[in-house]
Nucleic acid binder design. Structure first.
Lengths: 236, 236
DNA sequence: CGGGATGTTGATGTGAATCAACGCGGGTGG
DNA sequence: CCACCCGCGTTGATTCACATCAACATCCCG
């Protein structure tokens, strides 16, 4: 199976075979396995490396003192946990594995080396970063102004495209390995209400979800329901 | 009055006087005035320049087809509307003036020139960007998991620090030129409820707000009420 | 001095939270 | 290999935070 990181970068820029080899090399060193529900990077740390997700899903989250949890980003295979480790900023949040996860540990120097003299790689990383920021904006808009069903539909549409570009979707069918409580923390709701909303999406014939796999039955309908416009995921 | 952009950059990095002169120069060219409620940058454009806010408040926002508006970021004096214009990405949102605004128009080349051979400036812009991203994460957490009163208290605390660093706060008293409908679109609520929440913050003695100026009466209390931890605004 | 946008308050409605109960499934330890 | 059990999914009953609707006060700008 091809490397989801390379797959995704090739959507941003045209890579020479040497570029591809360099990026692929990053993904083949210092492989680590992390159990589901474990932190990949705890809060308040100043990480020395970043992690490239190779398999499984993770999330950025903030934990409140009283137990509330807010998931502020989902990290899928091909995503870099922190492209900017080299700034050595202290973590203001944590990164946790939602499922068992395989990562490649990467040092800031390795990223620097990969960029040096490789404008396509640098450009690709920039675009990846712009996309990530656009996703953040969209999440703020979602949680702020979209209804429960719109939010869920929108998230499914986002994940559909992101997984497609990482080479992990099969047409309109995609892995969905997260629990309803996880979705609730990502969408700012309760798992009970996620469940009811999901039921509504199902009974209206837009999606099917079973054994951790989502099948989009009516892509146009789902996008309309979620006020989803793919433009924000397509920089440049 | 000193340039709020330079003020803020000096909080990130130590600037040589030449650095300071370069940054100050950026803020003194191509000054434009924009009326309140006008767009600085419309949606779907591919802007040729970025804008540095010199005076007044603006916002990034997304407009939904049915009229709903989500404000996804507030732009204060000293903020760059888009530090990454040089990537020429198509806007997936708009930038609008919330009050009358004075901006300096800056070309991508000027930013490139300012960075070249000036590591402090480059480092400062990076940190500025990391801070912006951290604010995005915090907003997602706010709208997702904070109650109405926590959200408003948290926003006030954020604005207090940002304005302080731009040299625009007077101790715990700060300009607050936005309307309650604007706050509502930023916090994902209605203006009516913002009004009631504000009243609650007032009657509990945490803040005073009149003639577009917020005075924080009890900073520790307000931070506690908003679950506010300033760490996220302090990269590195 | 007039009028539209904003601020304020009350009455009422509702989407989502909370509380509760139970089935199911997969992992674990005996 | 089976029994247990905890987390998850599902559904119903009830509550509540916030939205909606409405009326009026106030401010600011022309």
């Amino acid at each position: 199976m091809e490397n989801p990181f390379v797959r995704k970068m090739e959507r941003h820029v045209r890579l020479a075979s040497e570029d591809r080899a360099i990026l692929d090399g990053l993904a083949r060193q210092h492989i680590r396995h992390i159990a589901g529900r474990q932190d990949i990077e705890g809060p308040h740390t100043e990480p020395y490396h970043t992690h490239l997700i190779l398999d499984g899903w993770a999330c950025r989250y903030k934990q409140f003192p009283d137990g509330r949890r807010a998931i502020v980003a989902l990290l899928l295979p091909g995503d870099l946990c922190d492209p900017f480790v080299f700034r050595r900023a202290r973590m203001d949040h944590a990164i946790g594995a939602l499922t068992p996860v395989t990562v490649a540990r990467i040092t800031p120097d390795q990223i620097g080396d990969a960029i040096r003299g490789r404008p396509a790689i640098e450009e690709g990383l920039w675009r990846e970063m712009l996309t990530t920021t656009a996703i953040h904006r969209e999440w703020i808009a979602s949680v702020g102004r979209r209804s429960a069903i719109e939010r869920l539909a929108h998230l499914f549409c986002e994940l559909h495209l992101r997984l497609t570009w990482a080479g992990l979707a099969d047409g309109t069918s995609l892995p969905m390995p997260v629990t309803q409580p996880d979705l609730a923390d990502a969408l700012g709701q309760t798992s009970v209400h996620i469940n009811r909303t999901l039921k509504e999406l199902r009974t209206s014939g837009l999606v099917a979800l079973r054994s951790r796999r989502l099948t989009i039955r009516d892509l146009d309908g789902l996008r309309e329901r979620g006020l989803f416009d793919p433009a924000y995921l397509l920089p440049a």
